[in-house]
Design a protein around this nucleic acid. Structure first.
Length: 507
RNA sequence: GGGGCGUUAGCUCAGCUGGUAGAGCAGCGGACUUUUAAUCCGUUGGUCGGCGAUUCGAAUUCGCCACGCCCUACCA
């Protein structure tokens, strides 16, 4: 099958041909007989939403006195033919507007042609803006043209497209007929724009670092492998930009951010797509506490710009981003949300092992207090962190790139931000000691030798960069897709990615 | 990877315990000069996801496969 993929059809009619498509192909063939069937000489001057805004407040009489003209183009979503007069609803990028066609103004010949045009066709209209007896703002078409024929029918005009598979595979159809889907992607764009504005306003430099790495690093994940022919070289799609962005702080780009794709060769779920978008940012001469303040400010600003409020609803729960975010260690969070575990006991490995016993979690004799706390945290507390909560001081074992705490080297100066029980951000004071970093890489490389597929590689060039002196810095990553899920109340990551990864389909 | 559920006309969906497939919308034909999910009359359209089994007979029961959704595991 792989070989006939993406080959042009071979004379045989496509599998999904049907009566409706055949009918429309016939109409298209007749169109071709009378000139270009897909003309590109129509210039629209007005957008539906702008007309609604400009004339929405005018009465029927006021409009008749002024007779404003308008030129719009769009897809025909609804059509009502009533003999000698017809109505249609056009949809453009901004919204919808009704057009009115009759024999007197539009002309009988054009009207007759219009009657055979189909829902989904793209039309261009020029005419007077007026208000109908029922009060609908409309354009009385003086000129009306078919600009692009739709050979395939649109889904049900009232129910839209419900089949999730078809919505994901044929997003173009979903976007035409499901306004709420369009809204999600408009919001996504606004969120990304708000993020850019936030960092640019703080003198950050937006950069683009390689997506193809010879040594994948910066995260614990299995990479995609690829091959460069001319260089005859194995390459990996990046799992994170982190190590390159920190090289830039060595280079003197002291405030950098990147919004771009990461690729991880792992399972697919409602929260995981193989390629996903990450924001990562690094600032020299700052620490993780500063980052927590910055993160709060960022989320509040996005919420204000995109939603107009700091209160949001996600899948039935309300979250207030306006309040100060909680900052708790794992032990504190466990004790706070599970009163059955006293805080003082959570510092004792023996107690933690007993507490973990009822859960189906692997505990190793070598697990220290930090790891045991992490396991108990994930089992009992993570999903209870509905309101924004920073969890701080992660064990050093699970944070190979974070700076160890000066007072307690077993933990790192790190935080993760949880909202609605999900991790939204991960940041820390960066490890800039080349010898400490080399030792941690060595430990990771040994773990990889021992079979841990997600352990990191030893990155000698990264160590070399640190040896030139990296300024003390703090850095953070935020998964954009999950952030968009939160802000758009989307239950699945596929709802916020235009073309999510699915298994190959035979068309 | 493991478990559950789903797949019927272009779209949205009915179809009980097996008796040979329906509606609405869309399409086609007709009526209608201010409709708006227009309305009214008539009408076309389906190898019921695929393959196999049971049966006189399968959309319906059973098995396998494909694709999707949800949960779960790893992670962001």
């Amino acid at each position: 099958m792989a070989n006939d993929k993406n080959q042009p059809p071979s004379g045989e009619p496509p599998q999904d041909e049907n009566q409706i498509i055949a009918e429309r192909r016939g109409k298209l063939a007749r169109l071709r007989e009378s000139g270009p069937a897909f003309p590109n000489d129509f210039r629209r001057k007005d957008l539906a939403a702008e007309l609604q805004r400009a004339y929405g407040g005018k009465t029927k009489e006021e409009l008749e006195a002024v007779k404003p003209s308008a030129t719009v183009a769009g897809r025909m979503m609804l059509k009502r033919v009533m003999g000698k007069a017809s109505f249609a609803t056009l949809q453009d990028m901004s919204g919808q507007i009704q057009i009115y066609i009759n024999n007197d103004v539009t002309g009988a010949e054009t009207h007759e042609a219009f009657k055979h045009w189909d829902l989904g066709d793209i039309l261009g209209v020029e005419g007077m803006v007026f208000r109908t007896n029922k009060g609908e703002l409309s354009i009385h078409a003086a000129k009306l043209r078919l600009l692009a024929k739709a050979v395939r029918p649109l889904p049900d005009k009232f129910h839209g497209l419900a089949d999730m598979e078809q919505r994901y595979r044929q997003r173009y159809v979903d976007l035409i007929v499901n306004p709420e889907s369009r809204e999600v992607f408009i919001k996504r764009s606004k969120i990304v724009q708000a993020i850019r504005e936030f960092f640019v306003a703080r003198d950050y430099l937006e950069v683009e670092t390689p997506m193809m790495h010879s040594i994948p690093g910066g995260a614990a994940a299995r990479p995609f492998k690829t091959h460069h022919n001319a260089l005859d070289m194995e390459l990996f799609l990046r799992i994170a930009p982190e190590l390159y962005l920190k090289r830039l702080t060595v280079g003197g780009l002291e405030k950098v951010f990147e919004i771009n794709r990461n690729f991880r060769n792992e399972g697919i779920s409602t929260r995981h797509n193989p390629e996903f978008t990450m924001l990562e940012f690094y600032e020299a001469y700052q620490d993780y506490r500063y980052l927590m303040d910055l993160t709060e400010a960022l989320l509040k600003e996005i919420a204000q710009k995109v939603l107009g409020t700091t209160t949001l609803a996600y899948q039935g729960v309300t979250v207030d981003l306006g309040r100060a975010f909680d900052r708790l260690t794992m032990a504190e969070a466990i004790a706070k949300h599970n009163p059955r575990y006293p805080l003082a006991e959570l510092a004792k490995p023996e107690y933690l092992k007993i507490a973990l016993a009822p859960f189906d979690i692997e505990v190793f004799p070598t697990d220290g207090v930090g790891l045991l706390q992490l396991k108990l945290f994930e089992a009992t507390t993570e999903d209870k962190l509905v309101d924004p909560t920073f969890i701080i001081a992660h064990p050093v074992d699970v944070s190979p790139l974070a700076r160890a705490n000066d007072a307690n080297p077993a933990v790192t100066d790190r935080f993760e931000l949880f909202i609605t029980g999900r991790e939204i951000a991960n940041g820390f004071s960066e490890l800039n000691d080349p010898e400490d970093q080399a030792a941690r890489f060595t430990a990771q490389a040994q773990a990889k030798e021992a079979g841990d597929e997600e352990a990191m590689y030893y990155d000698a060039d990264y160590i070399r960069a640190l040896e030139y002196g990296m300024p003390p810095a703090a850095g953070e990553g935020i998964g954009i897709d999950r952030l968009v899920m939160l802000f758009t109340d989307s239950p699945s990551i596929r709802d916020v990615i235009l073309f999510p990864q699915l298994k190959a389909e035979e068309i």
